[in-house]
Amino acid sequence: MLSQESLQQIDREIAKYPADQKQSAVMAALRIAQVEKGWLSRETIEYVARYLEMPAIAAYEVASFYNMYDLEPVGRHKITVCTNLPCALSGGVHAADYVRQKLGIDFNETTPDGRFTLKEGECMGACGDAPVLLVNNHHMCSWMTTDKIDQLLADLDKK
């Protein structure tokens, strides 16, 4: 269900915790599974739960509680824009409007070609870098002017 490489990464996470506390690795394991699969289907979550010898419902609780797990398919690139107050004061809302207009989609939508999904984010802990965009959960882009947004979207479009 998951590649050898993903399973090796999960094993490294399991090793961080006491031998009888494998469940502690569930957040990392779900992240690793999501990177490989693109999103977390019920089958993927159940597989992770079996691998960690924990009840499937407990893994599902975790997957549905933390908001960076995607329980539905997303586009090839997921872009999250922070519009919380500190970011909004430095143009976070304008940046979000610009991305919306540029991609022709609203928050929680995916472009028809399946390339981009847009999300509205909560605090990313980088308010001094506003406007801030997060790409595919793991890459943070700081001080995003409209020019830099153009460049970012063009670069991602090639991938």
Binding site: K16, Y17, S24, M27, R31, V62, F65, Y66, Y69
Partner: peptide, 26 residues
């Protein structure tokens, strides 16, 4: 060791943080 969160403000509350390290909802 380092433990990576995945998007929940509440885990900054110390006991929610512990629950989260235990592999549960925060």
């Amino acid at each position: 060791f380092a433990h990576h969160g995945y998007g929940a403000y509440i885990c900054g509350e110390e006991t929610a943080l512990l629950e989260s390290i235990e592999g549960k909802k925060g």
